[in-house]
Simulated scan of single mutants.
Amino acid sequence: MPDFDDFEGLRALLSAAPAADAQAQAAARERNTQLTKPPAALGRLEDLAIWYAGWRGNPRPAVSSPQIIIFAGNHGVAAQGVSAFPAEVTAQMVLNFQAGGAAINQLAQVAGARLDVHALDLDRPTADFTHGPAMSEADCVIALQTGWDAVDPASDLLVVGEMGIGNTTSAAAIACALFGGDAADWAGRGTGVDDAGLATKARVVDEGVQRHRGGDGLETLARLGGRELAAMAGAIARARTERIPVILDGFICSAAAACLAQTEGRALEHCVAGHLSAEGAHGRLLAALNKTPLLSLDMRLGEGSGAALAIQVVKAAVACHSGMATFSEAGVADG
């Protein structure tokens, strides 16, 4: 069972979470200077490998056990017409994940990653946050605990993704509440809503944010989030305590992660942004989190798909760092 049963317990865990291993990071940085290449010739791959080495506590690490976890939840706010698809699609897509028929299944297989799927009370949507809090603290904590428990401590790289009709509206409301600006700045087309649907979405986000002002990231998560967003946040928090590096997915995952960052400033030091989503406000959200994406391929599927693809980039960075010969090993003059 998780070591927390309320928000205060999770806040304490985040505050006490370990940092990266400074000695391993320093040794990895020194090794990088000795590899058979010109300085900085591998660009961001070098920084990525050093970052990974620090979190794994090994100056010459390997990525061997990546885990992808998909969480699914339903949103009461979906009844306001904020999505191009009905809420029934959430459960239908969970079945598709379980049958191996979704994009994330293919990307997980290519990445050599374990894939787990968790559906959270799909027959009990969250409340419409324009009328009251989406979740009570107790409900939110249960979802956070589900995410926490879903992480395999033996994994060495984590991706969390989601499925939930209406969840880009929830993510936009969280981002707006945490970082300010107008609702229209954060509300995007999500599953492909038309102009009228986009206007409805912006109105719904504005009403939710106006109703639920104040509070830290966890309180905002409960008031405006969904069970799948809370589960993603719980999994990211668990990875932090286990020193498991995390690749963040798109807009919704980043909004869930932002709730941790706005609760504890160091909470996302073990995370990199996997990609820049085509969902319009994702770049703004990543800028607020000070995360530069590894990929930009106009993806906006969700499911953890962009981050799953970025597993290959992290693997490549680590393989080059750990597998390349040094100048002395290769008998190459280092200038």
Results as ranks from 00 to 15, higher is better:
residue 60 R to T: 14
residue 92 Q to R: 06
residue 183 A to N: 07
residue 161 G to W: 06
residue 19 A to V: 05
residue 139 D to T: 15
residue 324 M to G: 08
residue 286 L to C: 05
residue 5 D to A: 11
residue 134 A to S: 14
residue 92 Q to G: 01
residue 328 S to C: 01
residue 101 G to T: 06
residue 268 L to W: 10
residue 60 R to K: 09
residue 162 E to P: 08
residue 314 V to M: 11
residue 293 P to N: 07
residue 99 A to R: 15
residue 219 E to T: 15
residue 132 G to R: 15
residue 242 E to Y: 04
residue 119 A to N: 10
residue 310 A to K: 08
residue 117 V to R: 12
residue 202 A to Y: 03
residue 143 A to Q: 14
residue 89 V to H: 00
residue 88 E to Y: 10
residue 222 A to S: 13
residue 330 A to P: 02
residue 329 E to L: 10
residue 101 G to K: 06
residue 28 A to T: 06
residue 169 T to M: 08
residue 249 D to M: 07
residue 26 A to Q: 04
residue 57 G to Q: 11
residue 162 E to R: 10
residue 138 A to C: 00
residue 245 P to Y: 12
residue 295 L to V: 01
residue 139 D to K: 11
residue 256 A to D: 03
residue 285 L to P: 01
residue 330 A to K: 02
residue 115 L to D: 12
residue 279 E to H: 10
residue 270 H to P: 08
residue 235 A to E: 11
residue 218 L to K: 06
residue 222 A to Q: 02
residue 209 V to Q: 00
residue 68 I to N: 03
residue 234 G to S: 07
residue 216 D to V: 04
residue 69 I to P: 06
residue 231 A to F: 10
residue 56 R to F: 09
residue 216 D to E: 14
residue 173 A to V: 15
residue 221 L to I: 12
residue 45 L to I: 04
residue 100 G to K: 12
residue 236 I to H: 06
residue 241 T to M: 15
residue 54 G to W: 03
residue 318 V to C: 08
residue 239 A to D: 12
residue 213 R to T: 15
residue 24 A to M: 01
residue 191 T to E: 14
residue 215 G to S: 11
residue 86 P to C: 11
residue 250 G to H: 09
residue 252 I to P: 03
residue 222 A to M: 01
residue 304 G to V: 12
residue 6 D to H: 13
residue 271 C to E: 02
residue 135 M to G: 13
